[in-house]
């Protein structure tokens, strides 16, 4: 068996990669229930993490011209934003967790200077049904920590999540 290639930090100069417009997941012409997701990333001192590469992935909805992928850079204030289609519930997980459908969510990857490996987590959406039964949210016992994955509803189709890399209020990050 071969061993997976080691991860290295994305560093401070990853912006050389193309990403302009990639934070709009409808950029190839997908239509549907459009939502915006904004976020803000801070570090263990409370300072804005202004050089992060943030990516989202959502396998649902399955509609034409929607590849479920977006990339954004955090700005000086640590902020990022995505325009996407409202995610749909996805099939559950077999085994002890039961095959319960998962509440709508997007997968989130954060890469940055100072992160030797990508951080992965999910964004759920305030007001959606199914959070109480969701097999991943239910792995987190502390309600305060569970809440770090749920974006606040800030408008009819707008959501916002504060992400804390380290320390008080630290976001729950995943080993997948």
């Amino acid at each position: 068996m071969s061993i997976t290639t080691a991860s290295q930090t994305i560093g401070p100069y990853w912006h050389l990669l193309p990403f302009e417009g990639w934070n709009d997941l409808t950029r190839f012409g997908a239509t549907g229930d459009v939502i915006t997701i904004t976020g803000r990333i801070t570090d263990g001192t409370g300072a804005a993490a202004g050089d992060c590469c943030v990516e989202i992935w959502q396998p649902r909805p399955e509609v034409e011209n929607f590849d479920g992928f977006g990339r954004a850079a955090t700005d000086k204030d640590g902020g990022f934003s995505f325009t996407t289609l409202r995610p749909e519930p996805v099939p559950g997980v077999h085994g002890r967790l039961g095959n319960v459908q998962q509440a709508p969510h997007v997968g989130l990857t954060i890469m940055a200077r100072g992160l030797m490996k990508a951080l992965q987590t999910r964004i759920y959406f305030e007001g959606d049904a199914g959070h109480d039964q969701d097999p991943v949210l239910n792995l987190i016992e502390d309600p305060a920590r569970r809440a770090t994955l749920v974006a606040k509803k800030t408008g009819a189709a707008a959501y916002h999540l504060d992400i804390v890399l380290q320390g008080a209020g630290e976001t729950v990050f995943f080993a997948i």
């Binding site: 570090d43 263990g44 997968g107 100072g114 987190i140 630290e170 976001t171 990050f173 995943f174």
Partner: peptide
Amino acid sequence: TKFRAPKQQLLQVPTSLT
């Protein structure tokens, strides 16, 4: 890495479609 590395243990998450 000093103020960016998470301090909490990562949550082991089962694989699903996502």
